[in-house]
Every structure is written in C-alpha cells, then in structure tokens.
Design a binder for these strands. Structure first.
Length: 489
RNA sequence: GGUCGGUUAACCGAGUGGCUAGGUAGCGGUCUGCAAAACCGUUUACGGCGGUUCGAAUCCGCCACCGACCUCCA
C-alpha cells in the first residue's frame, strides 16, 4: 500500500512518511472528552482534525480502527482538592447520580459531534468500563518495580523509571527542572517525589465513584485509562495517538512511561497534537471559564456572538487553519468562514448542472495532484481549500461559458469535489432537505413565471416587489439572461 | 523562572531564498431595466535591528511582544 502521506510526529518534531505497522490496518487512538459539561469549541478541534485524518486514511484504503475514549471516571480536580472529583462535584450540584451526569454529557457530546458531521469512531470505550484492565496494568507496573503502594494508593516511581528510560522525551522535560519547578501542593505527602503520579487512588469516605482493588477501594489514576484501553483495542504497539497539545504534558508523557514500564517498549509510533482555540489571545478552556459551547455557537445565544453559526460554518472555520496552529475566535473570522463555505457549496451545486464541451480549457489533473499533495503534507487543509477554491473558479467560469470542460474532465472534477469536499473534509450542504423541496420548487416556478410576465410588460415596480418580498422570506432571486434562478439566503 | 511555539496586508490564514496562496471585506470594470450572483482587474504585507547572499518575508544572530505547557484541560 503505497502513499506519500507524511505526518508531523510530536515525538521527533519532524514530518515523517506514514508507514503503518501492519498495512493495510491502521490503529488510531484519540483522547476524548471528560464528560462533565457541555462541549465547547475547543472540543470540536481534535474531533474535526482526527475525523479528517480518519477520513483521509480511509480514503487511502487503509482499514482504520479509530478508538476515542470517554473519560467518565472523574479525575481529581487538583491534588489539594482531596477526594472530590469533577464529575462528583457536578453531580452534587445538579443532584444527579454521577453516572447520570456522565450520560447527560455523553449525549450532548455525541449530538454535537454528529452535527459537526464527524464519523463515529470504531470504538468509544469508557474508562469506567475498563477498571479491570487498568488494575491489570497497575499490577504489571508494580511487578516490574516502577510503582509503589502507600496507604492503599499506588504511585508511579518516575525517578526509578528515569534511571532506565527517558522520562520527558515527548514534552522535552528534564527531570531536574521538573523537580525544581513542580509546585508543592497539599495531599502529596504520600509520594516519594512530587513528580510521581497516581496509578490508583484510595477513596475518601465521601467519594462516590469507587471500585474495589487489591490495594483499596478507590479509583484509577489520571493517565491510566488511555494506556489500558489503547493496548486492549489496538495492541501493545499501534500507529497513531492523537489529542490536544495541552495533553502533551503530563498526560501523554505519563502514558509513555506507563506503557514502557509495563511492556518494556513504547506503544505509539506517531504522536499527533492539535493546537488550541484562543479567545482574546487566550486558550479557550473550561477551567478558564472563557469558553463558548457548541450549542451556543449553533444558536447564537452568547454575549460574544453576533449571530448564530451553523455546524458546517464551525467545521469550515476549523479546517481553514492548519491543525497545528492556534485559531483565534472572532465574529469577523467566523462570518468570513460562513461566506466562504457557502461559496464552496454553491459551486458544488453548479458543478452538477455543468454541460460538457468537446475539449477542455482547464487542467483538472494538476488540480487533483495539488489536492493530494496538500493532504499528504501533514493534513494541510488550508492549502487544500485554496486549491478547491481554484476549482470553484473553474466551475463558475465554465458555468459562465468562459472556460470549457470535456465530459471526461467534468466527471473528473465532480469526483474530485466529491472526494475532497465531502468525503475527506467532511463538509455537507446544510440547505438540503430543509423542507418539501418539490413543492417549493413548483411554487417558485410559478412565482418566477408571474414575475417574468410583469417584467415583459416592464412593470418594474411589480417585479421588484416580488423580489423584495421573496428576500424578506429568505429567498434570493437572481435574474439571468434567460429566466431567473433562486436560492435560500 | 524552565521548556516549546508564534509574530504575514482591513480581518482570517498558507507558503517559499528570486516566480499571484486562498477566503472575507474594499475599490474599479463586464453583465443587468435595477439589484444580486458570477467573472475580470486591483489597493493595503511579511514585529524591530544587524549579518550571510547577486538576491531574504524566507537562512543566522540579537532584541521586542504574544501564547502554550510546567495543575484537571481538547
């Protein structure tokens, strides 16, 4: 299975040719959300990025197993926050069972992801369903001597691990610096070193989410679930691990340490990290309280939003930038994305109506080549879009009669747009199927005929009135040389 | 403080040692009864100061500013 696909590997900090371990199979693991509140724009970034990766790999005819976890075992809010975790805190607030909270936000996450037209992962494992596997991993790490038990809790021994392996290779951390810079927080006196991290945490009496274990009644540590579930579903070594850049340290660093300690080898071959969404130059994050939920974007119901933005506008907005650069939120940028997206969609409609000529005046094969090169270059969706807009110009020019396409090239252009716009970028036309299309078409035909009569009689006031009233109803009328076209606003 | 990354026109956002990125907005034109759309043309750039080079926004050095991570985070 040949390809020219290159991926920027966070581990080596270089673009590398993508060669799967066992072609045609590809194992892809992506860190999913912690489900304790509604998803915001930040959650859409990795979802759309890795959805595009999944779609592209599938297009390249790989058999991809795409695993995205759901973190439903509450992680400790912070080390000082003894025993209380995010999910339980929320549960108390809303007087719900922890698992009720989990279910509620899984539902909203999946709803929003569907609206963004992301494909369902092959497996969406939940941390709470893999306690046994996590305990098994802890046991392995203990057996290998890289963890220690204190008062029913188990901690990873970073210092001992670093004597044989390199801790910090992904994030570029140096242990001495970590030692000097790690904040001293309360509730850490059990650890041998402040940079050690919990594998199993003994539950305090008020802690609701708890499971029995050889060490204590408690819950698994912060970084364990991804190691356990990726191993279970993708094997000890797999191809791609993705997630947000903010997870690089400590989360992914700890994953590497856990897997290496347990299995003696690294599990991930390519690490991919998407960058953050910023708002007023700062990271959008739940913990910072500066987030806008996806529902709020879709409804426009937020003080910072000047209007509603459709799911596809959001998706297009994200795809306009490369996944490794930050994107700053602004109404202006979103409005520009909305216009651009609509222009692209209109062109795909026009494309379906184009008539072939005997010969072409446009080179479609080089356009195709450019599109593939853009995707092959570490998923350069912004570059791909620039080529697709070149295609849009071709389409409109052919429609205007200033350029020509042979029937072969026309078919080629259609398939190009289908593949890249819909299959790979995962965009879709949001106007389709909004109401009874047939009836609307018939009614519009009648109205346009009536207006044409008025125009023929040079009754401009009447014809303008019709056009004006239609505009108020959300329908734009465009007069052509012969007849008229209409479309929704 | 440590580590890493960024600074491109009105806004967003690519890229490259010499050749138009693209989108949105603006301006002019074609078309049109008018308008819209489309098409054609077009105005504002590469944070600052040095250096390398025939040539740098692109490479190197210094400086300034911004951000991410170092604590749960997509």
């Amino acid at each position: 299975m040949d390809n020219n696909f290159t991926i920027y590997n966070s581990l080596t900090r270089k673009k590398e040719p993508f060669k799967p371990l066992h072609p045609p199979f590809v194992g892809l693991y992506v860190c999913g959300p912690t489900v304790y509140s509604d998803p915001h724009l930040g959650h859409a970034r990795p979802a759309v990025t890795f959805d595009m990766l999944y779609r592209y790999l599938t297009h390249l005819e790989y058999k991809v197993r795409y695993v995205r976890n759901i973190t439903d075992v509450g992680h400790l809010e912070n080390d000082a926050d003894e025993g209380e975790d995010k999910i339980e805190k929320k549960a108390r607030l809303e007087h719900l069972e922890p698992m009720e909270v989990v279910q509620k936000y899984i539902n909203s996450f999946q709803k929003n992801m569907e609206e963004l037209n992301t494909l369902h992962p092959s497996i969406e494992p939940r941390a709470s369903g893999h306690i046994i596997e996590q305990q098994e991993l802890i046991r392995e790490i203990l057996e290998k001597g890289y963890a220690y038990e204190v008062n029913g809790s188990v901690y990873f021994d970073v210092l001992k691990y670093s004597k044989k392996f390199k801790y910090g290779k992904l994030s570029g951390r140096v242990l001495e610096e970590l030692q000097a810079n790690t904040r001293t927080l309360e509730g850490q006196e059990e650890k041998r070193n402040p940079f050690d991290f919990a594998l199993w945490k003994k539950a305090t009496p008020e802690h609701l989410m708890r499971w029995s274990s050889p060490w204590s009644e408690g819950s698994p540590g912060w970084h364990l679930e991804c190691s356990a579930m990726s191993t279970k579903y993708l094997g000890e070594v797999f191809d791609i691990h993705g997630g947000g850049m903010d997870l690089l340290f400590p989360h992914h660093e700890c994953e590497i340490a856990q897997s290496t300690a347990a299995k003696g080898k690294e599990s991930v071959r390519y690490w991919m990290h998407n960058n953050m969404i910023t708002i007023n130059g700062q990271k959008m994050a739940r913990s910072l309280g500066n987030f806008i939920t996806l529902e709020q974007f879709f409804s426009g119901d937020h003080p910072l939003l000047k209007q509603a933005y459709s799911p596809m506008t959001i998706r297009f907005f994200l795809l306009q930038a490369h996944y490794r650069s930050t994107i700053d939120f602004s109404n202006e940028a979103l409005q520009a994305a909305e216009k651009g997206f609509q222009k692209l969609m209109k062109a795909t409609e026009t494309l379906d109506k184009l008539k072939p000529s005997l010969a072409s005046s446009i080179d479609i094969s080089s356009l195709r080549k450019n599109c593939y090169e853009a995707m092959d270059d570490d998923l350069s969706s912004s570059v791909l879009l620039s080529y697709l807009f070149e295609g849009v110009k071709y389409i409109n020019s052919v429609s205007d009669g200033t350029e020509k396409l042979s029937s072969n090239d026309l078919e080629s252009l259609k398939s190009l747009f289908n593949v890249f716009v819909f299959d790979i970028l995962g965009l879709k036309d949001e106007t389709a199927g909004r109401c009874d299309e047939k009836l609307t078409d018939d009614l519009m035909k009648i109205i346009i005929d009536l207006r044409q009569d008025a125009k023929n009689k040079k009754e401009w006031a009447a014809s303008d009135k019709i056009r004006e009233e239609l505009k108020n109803a959300g329908i734009i009328l465009k007069d052509l040389k012969d007849g008229a076209e209409w479309e929704r606003e």
